[in-house]
Design a protein around this nucleic acid. Sequence first.
DNA 1: ATGTCGTGCTGCGCACGA
Length: 262
Amino acid sequence: MTLTVASWNVNSVKARLPNVLDWLSEAKPDVACLQEIKTVDEGFPRMEIEDLGYNIETHGQKSYNGVAILSKHPIEEVRCGLPGDESDEQARYIEAVISAETGPVRVASIYLPNGNPAPGPKYDYKLAWMERLRLHAKNLLAFEEPLILAGDYNCIPRDSDCWDIAEWESDALALPQTRAAFRALKWLGLTEAFEQLDGRGHQYTFYDYQAGRWNKGHGIRIDHLLCSPQAADRLEAIEIHTKTRGKEKASDHIPIVGSFSL
DNA sequence: ATGTCGTGCTGCGCACGA
């Protein structure tokens, strides 16, 4: 059996609804982790997406942030919010266990803080959030089960993951501390799916709306799937659905889809 | 390029976040 797990920052699920429905209908991912839904739970276009055969769990918020997990298989054990800071009110993390036909797969939809401007309080929040994610991922890895942490990590892992590092080297998405925190996460034993199976430079998942970045090919790779050993062993393909970025009313992010023999 | 989007109210143009 193949289980496909996708991550897509939709930049408002309501503004993006036709694009989201088109993509779900064509790509038919078994599991889709969405970020920046930009709506409270009650505002999520539930019926339209359920009609395509998806179960839905959301962790929404007014105006900003908000994450969701869509699944063609039953969803269990839902957790909303990243542990480690009771005062954090930003909706950036939802996790659930998917009852796939061959067994349970734990999946998280992650919207990691942008962190700009850096340095500053927003960057401090980003780094603290990444450390909380590391501690939580460490606990999840102890289950020794298939685990996929999918999301917008707001991290450019390598210089070759952007069109011109000179434009990004002092940005919160590429600063050494950001990359170090991302590596620390991987050092727990998580495999980054694209790096493992493809690894080419200049394969982008985000093109800013501004300055004609899409038309110029000026993108960055910041959306990632991090896999536990039990998921990485079953990873068979990774695809970036670049075509979605060229459509009318496109999100600035592009879906990334992993295929697992699970 | 001060370049574009999406949200929500200080609201029909602006501030903010990205």
